[in-house]
Design a protein around this nucleic acid. Structure first.
Length: 255
DNA sequence: GCGACAG
DNA sequence: ATCTTGTCGC
């Protein structure tokens, strides 16, 4: 079924060290994001969907990543892998990807299968510069990706309906350092550009925040999220990856 | 200048 | 993210 492996390599040569370098990398990679949908049919039998997540121990300079592959229809685990790496970047809102990606890539590489979609714990297009960790991971792997976050970051949205499946546009009203300026059409009618969606996956529970990463459309991203979050607020992919990376980190700490 | 700010 | 006990409810 699964295979748990580990790797302990440092950040790649050329990995950004300063914020300015990281910003430059984002600006360069952002042009390679593809917005046409190439993701699988949501919930289709025998298609593979992966979830990735990381856990930190800054004290010991350690980050543990996990990648878990599920059957999109049954939500059963098909494969999983973990990887350890040194913390490659400090936490800076807007530059999260530089902290998570090296370890996540290592975990994905040790997977025995190639998923048709990768679900990230965070944002994709819903990012001050439209290049969140889901976008970043997508460009580096070429895989369709989406971001499903637990809080709205710097965006706002109208109240979301109470039933499962209800949603409201996530709007960028122009904060954070991204863009400002009075020119250009923001895409939306009033209130800013739609960068994602606040989506209710469970009745009476706080919504999740979905945005497009690479090679996936927003409608498809929401459909995938709903198909993966049938039992809990968060997609089964992120729940499984979260549990696995915590276990991997504890195991590493006891070493 | 100050506060907010995915994980 | 992480530090942390019990508790109310399906």
């Amino acid at each position: 079924m699964a295979q748990a492996a580990q790797a302990a390599q440092g950040p790649q040569p050329g990995w950004p060290v300063t914020e300015a370098e990281a910003l430059a990398v984002q600006d360069q990679l952002r042009a390679r994001v593809e917005y046409a949908d190439h993701s699988p049919v949501p919930g289709a039998p025998c298609t593979l969907v992966a979830g990735v997540d990381v856990a930190y121990d800054d004290e010991r300079d350690l980050v543990a990543a996990a990648a878990v592959v599920l059957d999109a229809a049954t939500l059963e685990v098909v494969a999983q892998a973990t990887a350890l790496a040194p913390v490659s970047f400090p936490y800076v809102p807007g530059l999260l990807a530089f902290r998570e990606i090296p370890a996540v890539l290592a975990a994905l590489e040790q997977l025995g299968s190639v998923p048709g979609l990768v679900v990230c714990d965070g944002y994709g297009m819903a990012h001050p510069r439209r290049f969140g960790l889901a976008s970043h991971l997508g460009v580096l792997t070429g895989l369709p990706t989406i971001g499903v976050a637990k809080s709205p970051f710097l965006f706002r949205h109208a109240p979301v309906g109470e039933r499962r499946g209800d949603s409201a546009p996530l709007l960028d009203e122009g904060r954070g350092r991204g863009e400002c300026g009075p020119d250009g059409d923001e895409g939306g009618d009033e209130g800013g550009e739609e960068v994602g969606r606040a989506l209710r996956t469970r009745e009476g529970v706080k919504p999740v925040y979905v945005s497009v990463g690479h090679r996936t459309g927003l409608d498809a991203a929401c459909a995938h999220t709903l198909a993966l979050a049938r039992h809990y607020r968060l997609p089964e992919t992120t729940r499984r990856a979260d549990a696995l990376c915590r276990t991997a980190l504890r195991a590493a700490q006891g070493t």
